[in-house]
Measured scan of single mutants.
Amino acid sequence: NKFNKELGWATWEIFNLPNLNGVQVKAFIDSLRDDPSQSANLLAEAKKLNDAQA
C-alpha cells in the first residue's frame, strides 16, 4: 500500500544521510515505524538535521 512504499523510501533515504549518527538514524526509523503516515515530515526533519550537521 501507499504507506509501505513511502515508509520504505523514507527509511532508505534516512539510512543514506551521511551526517546522521547511528542513534539519530535509529530514532528517525523508530518514529517512521510508529507512524508511517508521517514519513514525509520525518524525512524532511532528518534532512534538516543532516544539513545542520554537515
Score class of each variant (00 low, 15 high):
Ala40Cys: 15
Val23Ala: 15
Leu32Trp: 04
Trp12Gly: 04
Thr11Cys: 15
Ala46Glu: 00
Arg33Trp: 15
Leu43Arg: 03
Gly8Lys: 14
Phe28Val: 01
Ile29Asp: 01
Leu43His: 01
Asn50Val: 01
Asn1Ser: 05
Asp34Leu: 14
Leu7Pro: 05
Ser37His: 04
Ala10Tyr: 15
Ser39Tyr: 15
Asn4Leu: 12
Asn41Glu: 12
Leu42Gln: 02
Val23His: 12
Arg33Tyr: 15
Asn19Phe: 15
Ser39Gly: 06
Leu49Trp: 04
Phe3Glu: 11
Ser31His: 08
Gly22Val: 12
Asp30Trp: 05
Asn1Tyr: 03
Thr11Gly: 07
Ala46Gly: 01
Gln53Thr: 04
Lys2Gly: 13
Lys47Pro: 01
Asp51Arg: 13
Ile14Asn: 01
Asn1Met: 05
Ser37Met: 06
Trp9Asp: 07
Asp51Ile: 10
Ser37Cys: 08
Pro36Gln: 03
Leu32Gly: 00
Asp51His: 09
Ala10Glu: 05
Trp12Phe: 09
Pro18Ala: 07
Thr11Phe: 15
Gln24Glu: 02
Gly22His: 13
Gly8Leu: 15
Gln53Asn: 06
Glu45Thr: 09
Lys5Glu: 15
Asp35Pro: 01
Leu20Asp: 00
Asn4Gly: 11
Ala46Arg: 00
Lys26Ala: 09
Lys5Asn: 12
Val23Gly: 10
Ile29Val: 07
Lys26Glu: 05
Ala52Lys: 09
Ile29Phe: 05
Gln38Val: 04
Asn16Val: 04
Phe28Ala: 00
Asp34Cys: 10
Lys48Phe: 09
Lys2Pro: 12
Lys48Gln: 09
Leu49Asn: 02
Ile14Gly: 02
Ile29His: 02
Asn50Cys: 04
Asn4Trp: 15
Ile14Glu: 02
Leu32Ser: 01
Asn50Gly: 01
Gly22Arg: 13
Asn16Cys: 13
Asn41Lys: 14
Glu6Phe: 13
Ala46Asn: 00
Ala52Gly: 05
Asn41Leu: 12
Asn4Asp: 14
Lys48Glu: 07
Ile29Gly: 01
Asn41Ser: 13
Phe3Lys: 08
Leu32Ile: 11
Ser31Ile: 10
Ala27Ser: 11
Leu42Gly: 01
Ser39Leu: 10
Leu49Cys: 06
Ala27Lys: 13
Ala44Phe: 10
Ala54Ser: 09
Gln53Met: 13
Ala40Leu: 12
Glu6Pro: 06
Gln24Tyr: 02
Asn21Val: 04
Ala44Asn: 08
Gly22Ala: 13
Asn16Trp: 06
Glu6Thr: 08
Gln24Ser: 01
Asn50Arg: 01
Leu20Lys: 00
Pro18Tyr: 05
Glu6His: 08
Ala52Glu: 11
Asp34Pro: 01
Ser39Cys: 14
Gly8Glu: 15
Ala44His: 08
Glu6Asp: 11
Asp35Ile: 03
Ala40Gln: 11
Leu7Phe: 11
Leu7Thr: 06
Asn21Cys: 09
Ala40Asp: 08
Val25Phe: 03
Glu13Arg: 13
Gln53His: 04
Leu20Asn: 00
Phe15Leu: 12
Gly8Ile: 15
Lys2Val: 11
Arg33Leu: 14
Val23Glu: 13
Glu6Val: 11
Asn16Phe: 05
Gly8Ser: 14
Ala10Gln: 06
Leu43Thr: 03
Ala27Thr: 09
Gln38Gly: 05
Trp9Ser: 10
Ala54Cys: 10
Phe15His: 05
Trp9Ile: 10
Leu49Arg: 02
Asn1Glu: 11
Asp51Phe: 09
Ala46Tyr: 04
Phe3Cys: 15
Thr11Ser: 09
Trp12Tyr: 09
Asn1Cys: 15
Ser37Ile: 03
Leu49Pro: 01
Glu6Leu: 14
Ala10Asp: 04
Asp30Ala: 13
Lys47Leu: 07
Ser37Phe: 05
Ala54Thr: 08
Ala27Tyr: 15
Val25Ala: 05
Asp51Glu: 13
Glu45Gln: 12
Leu32Asp: 00
Leu17Thr: 01
Ser31Thr: 05
Ser37Tyr: 06
Lys26Ile: 07
Asp30Gln: 14
Lys26Thr: 07
Lys47Phe: 06
Phe3Tyr: 10
Trp12Arg: 08
Leu49Ser: 02
Ala54Trp: 08
Ser31Trp: 11
Glu45Asn: 04
Ala10Asn: 03
Gln24Arg: 00
Gly22Asp: 12
Trp9Gly: 05
Glu6Cys: 15
Pro18Glu: 06
Ala52Pro: 01
Lys48Val: 06
Phe3Trp: 10
Lys48Tyr: 05
Leu17Phe: 06
Asn4Phe: 12
Asn16Ala: 07
Leu17Ile: 01
Trp9Gln: 14
Asn19Lys: 02
Asn21Leu: 11
Asn19Glu: 03
Asn50Glu: 01
Ala44Trp: 11
Pro36His: 02
Ala27Ile: 08
Lys2Asn: 13
Ser39Pro: 02
Asp51Cys: 09
Trp12Ser: 06
Asn4Ser: 09
Ser31Asn: 08
Asn1Val: 07
Asn50Phe: 02
Ala44Glu: 14
Phe3Thr: 10
Ala46Gln: 01
Pro18Ile: 07
Lys2His: 13
Gln24Thr: 03
Trp12Val: 05
Leu43Val: 14
Gly22Thr: 11
Asn1Thr: 07
Phe15Tyr: 14
Ala46Thr: 01
Leu20Ile: 02
Asp51Thr: 09
Phe3Arg: 07
Ala10Met: 10
Asn19Val: 01
Phe15Pro: 01
Leu7Cys: 12
Trp12Ile: 05
Ser37Gln: 07
Gly8Gln: 15
Gln24Trp: 03
Pro18Val: 08
Gln24His: 02
Asn21Gly: 05
Asn19Ala: 06
Ala44Gln: 08
Leu49Lys: 03
Asn4Cys: 15
Val25Pro: 00
Ser31Phe: 09
Asn19Leu: 03
Glu6Ala: 07
Asn19Asp: 03
Ala54His: 08
Leu20Phe: 01
Ile29Gln: 02
Leu32Val: 04
Asp30Tyr: 04
Ser37Ala: 09
Ala44Ile: 10
Asn1Lys: 09
Ala40Met: 13
Asn1Ala: 05
Ala44Lys: 10
Glu6Ile: 12
Ser31Arg: 15
Arg33Cys: 14
Asn21Trp: 12
Ser37Leu: 07
Ala40Val: 10
Ala54Lys: 08
Leu20Tyr: 00
Glu6Lys: 07
Lys26Gln: 10
Asn21Ile: 05
Ala46Cys: 03
Ala54Glu: 07
Phe15Val: 08
Gln24Lys: 00
Thr11Met: 15
Leu7Trp: 12
Lys5Phe: 08
Phe3Asp: 11
Asp30Pro: 01
Lys2Ile: 14
Thr11Arg: 09
Phe3Gln: 08
Val25Glu: 01
Ile29Lys: 02
Ile14Tyr: 03
Phe28Gly: 00
Glu13Pro: 02
Phe28Trp: 02
Asn21Phe: 07
Lys48Met: 11
Asn21Ala: 06
Asn21Asp: 12
Asn4Ile: 10
Lys26Ser: 06
Ala52Ile: 11
Glu13Ala: 12
Asp30Gly: 06
Gln53Asp: 02
Phe15Ala: 09
Asp30Ile: 15
Asn1Arg: 05
Leu32Glu: 00
Lys26Pro: 00
Asn4His: 11
Phe15Glu: 09
Gln53Leu: 10
Glu13Asp: 04
Asp35Asn: 12
Asn21Ser: 14
Phe15Met: 15
Lys47Arg: 14
Trp9Met: 11
Gln53Phe: 05
Ala10Arg: 04
Gln53Trp: 03
Ala10Thr: 12
Ala27Met: 13
Phe3Asn: 10
Lys47Ala: 04
Asn16Pro: 00
Gly8His: 14
Asp34Thr: 10
Asn1Pro: 11
Ala27Trp: 15
Leu43Ser: 01
Phe28Pro: 00
Asn16Lys: 10
Trp12His: 07
Asp34Lys: 14
Lys2Ser: 13
Gly22Phe: 14
Gln38Ile: 06
Val23Pro: 11
Asp34Trp: 09
Arg33Pro: 01
Ile14Thr: 02
Leu17Pro: 00
Glu13Cys: 15
Ala10Trp: 13
Lys48Gly: 06
Ala10Leu: 06
